[in-house]
Lab assay of single mutants.
Amino acid sequence: TTVKLGDIKVTFDNPEKAKKYAQKLAKIYQLTVHVHGDTIHVK
């Protein structure tokens, strides 16, 4: 599962960890989390 934020891409083996990371980023940057299959976009 890949978390994308602009040019930053972080890949996790564990989808749950990816989701938590995405939510953490979203909170920090006051953005929202969008899940598209294996990719989680923070924008």
Rank of each mutant, 00 (worst) to 15 (best):
V10I: 14
V10S: 03
N14R: 05
T39F: 09
H34R: 08
N14I: 05
Y29P: 02
L25S: 00
V3F: 03
L31K: 02
K19D: 04
K19S: 07
H34D: 07
K4C: 15
Y29H: 06
V10L: 11
V42Q: 01
T39N: 04
N14M: 05
V33S: 02
I40S: 02
G6R: 08
V10D: 01
V33C: 11
V10G: 01
L5R: 04
D38V: 07
Q23F: 12
I8A: 05
D13L: 11
K20P: 00
T2F: 08
H34M: 11
T11W: 15
F12A: 01
T1K: 05
L5M: 13
K20M: 11
K43D: 08
D38H: 10
D13N: 10
P15K: 09
T11I: 13
I28S: 04
K9T: 13
Y21I: 03
K17S: 11
A18G: 03
K43S: 12
L25N: 00
I40M: 05
I40W: 06
I8Y: 15
Y29A: 02
T39Y: 08
V33T: 05
H41S: 08
K43L: 14
I28V: 07
T2H: 09
Q30I: 06
T2K: 06
G37N: 06
E16G: 07
E16L: 10
K43C: 15
K4N: 06
Y21R: 01
L5C: 15
D13S: 13
K19W: 15
A22H: 01
Y29N: 02
K9V: 13
K20F: 09
I40V: 06
Q30R: 10
K20L: 11
K19A: 10
D38K: 09
L5I: 15
A26W: 05
V3M: 03
Y29F: 11
A26P: 00
V10M: 10
V3P: 03
K19Q: 09
I40R: 01
T11S: 09
A26Q: 04
V33K: 00
F12M: 03
D7Q: 14
D13G: 08
T1D: 03
T32S: 10
D13E: 10
V42S: 02
D38G: 07
D38E: 07
K24N: 07
T11P: 04
F12T: 00
P15G: 06
I8M: 11
K17R: 11
K24W: 15
P15W: 14
K24L: 14
D13C: 14
H34L: 11
K27F: 11
H41N: 06
V35E: 07
G37M: 05
A26K: 04
Y21K: 00
D13K: 12
I8Q: 06
T32L: 07
Q23W: 11
T39E: 09
K20T: 07
D7S: 15
L25G: 00
V35G: 02
I28G: 01
Y29Q: 01
T11K: 11
D13V: 09
Y29D: 00
T11V: 13
V42D: 01
H41M: 09
D13T: 12
T11D: 04
N14K: 05
A18L: 04
K19M: 15
K20Y: 10
Q23M: 13
N14P: 02
V35R: 06
V33D: 00
K4V: 15
K24P: 00
E16N: 08
A18Y: 02
A26Y: 04
K19T: 07
F12C: 08
K19F: 15
I40P: 02
D38R: 09
N14T: 10
I8R: 10
V3E: 02
P15I: 11
T2Q: 06
K20E: 11
T32R: 06
G37T: 03
V10C: 15
A18W: 06
I40E: 01
Q23N: 09
K43V: 14
E16I: 10
I40N: 01
I28L: 13
D7V: 14
K17I: 10
K9F: 13
F12G: 00
K20N: 08
T1M: 12
A26G: 04
G37Y: 05
G37D: 05
V35A: 06
L25P: 00
P15L: 11
V42I: 11
K24M: 14
K19R: 12
Q30E: 08
P15F: 15
K27H: 08
H41A: 06
I28D: 04
D13I: 10
K27L: 11
V33N: 00
A18K: 00
K19G: 04
K20V: 09
I8D: 02
L31S: 04
E16Q: 09
A26D: 00
V10P: 01
H41C: 13
A22K: 02
K20S: 08
V35L: 08
L25A: 01
V3W: 03
H41V: 14
T2C: 13
V10T: 05
H41Q: 07
K17G: 05
I8F: 15
Q23A: 11
Y21T: 01
K19Y: 15
T11H: 13
V10W: 15
I28E: 07
E16H: 09
H41L: 12
N14Y: 04
T1S: 05
T11N: 08
Y21A: 03
Q30W: 08
K4I: 15
G6C: 15
L31Y: 06
A18H: 01
T1I: 13
T32E: 09
Y21M: 04
T39V: 13
K43G: 14
A26M: 05
L31I: 04
F12D: 00
T1F: 13
K24F: 15
H36F: 12
I40L: 08
T32M: 08
D38Q: 09
D7W: 15
T11L: 12
I8N: 05
H36M: 14
G6Q: 05
Q30P: 02
A18I: 03
K9D: 06
K24A: 10
Q23L: 12
F12L: 02
H34Q: 12
T11C: 15
Q23G: 04
V42M: 08
K9A: 11
K9I: 14
T39A: 05
D38I: 08
A22E: 00
K4E: 07
L5T: 03
H41F: 13
L31W: 05
A22W: 05
